[in-house]
Amino acid sequence: MNSRLSAITLNTFREAVRDRVLYNLIIFVLLLVASAPLFGQISIGLERLILVNVGLSSISVFGILIGIFIGIGLVSKEIEKKTLYTILSRPVRRWEFIVGKYFGLVLTLVVNAILMSVGFYVALLISEHKLTGADGHLLIAIYFAVLEFLMITAVTLLFSSFSTPIFSAIFAFALFVIGTFATDLRNFAAAAHGMTKWFATAAAYAVPNFASLNVIGQVAHDQPLGGSLIVMNTLYALLYSAAVTAGAVLIFERRNLK
């Protein structure tokens, strides 16, 4: 990593950390996790299940929301406030700016996920009075949530590289929802014919497939997950994010900045 890239990465991280809205979201998540044992008291015998489902879903969904929330402004804010001028007038390549921003936001989300996970495990320990091997198993779901962050960051950055924050947010959120139902899209493609099949198949591969990365249901029931699923999902998230980031670079390299 060259020094310009790491400088941009760290500055992006620093911006997010000093942004107060981020703390609000984290506090919200911590509250949610902390109140999870209360849910458990309502459904007797399901404390752990509910705590795991709520906790892991919160880590994933709030990470994605924070990713979208910060991601939409990553490029457009620097253009709007003209801070980008003072960067591009330096020996910084445009791709370095995009990639640095990407790493910066991913770093932010990973740190977030770690904080939320710590809170989650603390809640689990309070509720169960001990941690077992099955609880370690939950780390796979958290790891997959981080893979989701890689993808949503790339997607948001792509939109941010050519669109306004509002539209970026709408596009990114729409892709998040569609990506959650990506399995249905693939099933639909499998059942369709002709042009519809072609389009549905293309769409099913083009959208970020969050369905493939969601294993909260399985780990909550302590069902085994194959090593090949972990390898393949890792590959998928890395390659997909790289492709989308390359797309963002392609757009940004040629863009006239206002």
């Binding site: 693939r186 591969y205 393949m232 998928y236 390659l239 997909y240």
Partner: peptide, 15 residues
């Protein structure tokens, strides 16, 4: 990368 992601996704689905 996009082509690779298609294969990886199919692999994940199979897994």
């Amino acid at each position: 990368c996009f082509a690779g992601s298609i294969f990886a996704l199919d692999g994940a689905t199979a897994a």
